[in-house]
Simulated assay, not measured.
Amino acid sequence: MADRIAVLGAGAVGGMLAVLLAEAGHEVTVLASERTGTAINVGGLTLRSGRYGEIAARVPARPWLTAPVDVLFVAVKAPDLLAALSRVPAGLVDGAAVVPLLNGVDHVPLLRAAYPRADVVPMTVAVEATRVAPGVVEHLSPFADYAITAGDRDVDPGGLLRDAGLDVDTSAPDEATLLWRKLCFLGPFALLTTRAMEPIGPAREAGSTRLDALVEEAVAAATASGATPDGAAVRARLGGMPATMRSSMLKDAEAGAVLELDAIAGPILRAAPDGAPVTRGIVAEIAAAGR
């Protein structure tokens, strides 16, 4: 089993993952900014979770990778990806599994070009978690769902996560379906809640027609991109979400942070056969509001 693991990004997803992997006995290094890295080196990483309890882990943080690893989890947001890659010299991940957890689809070819001698293994994650301070993550949802395609690999990232107590789905038949399966759900969820500046419950009530159209356009874009999405499953999932759930894009808008509009909406706008007019209109409204 691989035990040399680096996590690029110490936000909600990366921080939670680093704590659980360290708790499972792996040698984990976090790659983070000077401010966040200093906080982690001084006070450690803390996860507060209804599912996992409160876990404090002593995990070293560095501004860049300094030694080879077996697995690199990439847990930064899409607008930060290019800058973050400067923290990881390509020679230190030769032969390693590079596992991106980003939203969207366009990061995969970028990572394969940046790390041609690594095994880039796309993975998706569905979890509601928030970094409340540098080195402190609150896990807010009862679930922490990861997905990866099945396959024989020298290093099994899905197995690492299962051993750390996370749920891992391997049912996607190919990478396109894996990535678009999440995007067909996340696009409508993120765009509707961010436009409304409300959690999914009130946003869903006020915009049910728009939500249906957003799903339809995302599914059409996915199909045109060679994926095999299940529109009915997406609608059922969106309809069954707890009313208080907030998308990460909504949280970013509330915080005044840069939004992942291109990573989440861009693939839909570029691939939808009809140009995705409802998606396009909502993106325009969010952009015009300065979010």
Rank of each mutant, 00 (worst) to 15 (best):
L101C: 01
A221N: 03
A243F: 15
H107T: 14
A190H: 13
A220D: 11
D167P: 09
Y146V: 00
P68T: 09
L47F: 02
D154M: 13
P188W: 12
A257G: 02
L161Y: 02
A147C: 06
P267S: 05
L101T: 03
G187I: 07
L45V: 10
L82Q: 14
T228S: 09
A220E: 13
P63V: 14
T228G: 11
D167S: 14
I286E: 05
V121F: 08
A75F: 06
L211V: 11
Y115S: 02
A61R: 12
L250Y: 02
P277V: 06
V99E: 04
A164R: 00
A96Y: 01
M16P: 03
V30I: 12
R195V: 11
G9W: 04
A126F: 05
A12V: 04
G290K: 14
R131K: 13
G95F: 10
D167R: 10
P267F: 02
P202Y: 14
P109W: 13
I55M: 09
E254D: 11
D152N: 12
S171R: 08
G37F: 04
R153T: 06
T228K: 14
A78D: 15
E128C: 13
V108A: 07
M249E: 00
I286C: 07
L111K: 04
T279D: 03
F143N: 14
D80V: 12
D156E: 06
F185K: 04
G256F: 09
G95P: 15
E205V: 14
V105L: 01
M241F: 12
K251W: 13
A83F: 09
E27N: 11
R237E: 12
P68Q: 12
S247W: 01
L111D: 10
G135L: 07
T66F: 06
E217N: 05
A22F: 02
V215T: 10
P242D: 15
L259C: 07
V278E: 04
G53H: 04
A271W: 06
R246P: 05
V105Y: 01
G95D: 11
S141T: 01
E23H: 12
R280A: 11
A218L: 08
I148H: 10
A276H: 05
R210H: 02
V7I: 06
L102I: 15
T209S: 03
D3L: 09
L140S: 03
P60W: 03
V98F: 09
L47Q: 00
T38R: 15
A118I: 07
K77M: 07
L191Q: 08
P188T: 05
G266K: 04
R181Y: 07
G207A: 09
G290C: 01
N103F: 05
L238V: 03
V88G: 09
I264W: 00
A213W: 05
L21G: 12
E254Y: 11
A164L: 00
P142R: 06
D163C: 15
P68L: 12
S248C: 12
G50C: 02
V258M: 01
A150K: 08
R246N: 00
K77Q: 09
D154P: 14
L269V: 12
R235N: 01
G104R: 04
L110F: 05
R235K: 13
P89Q: 10
V7W: 03
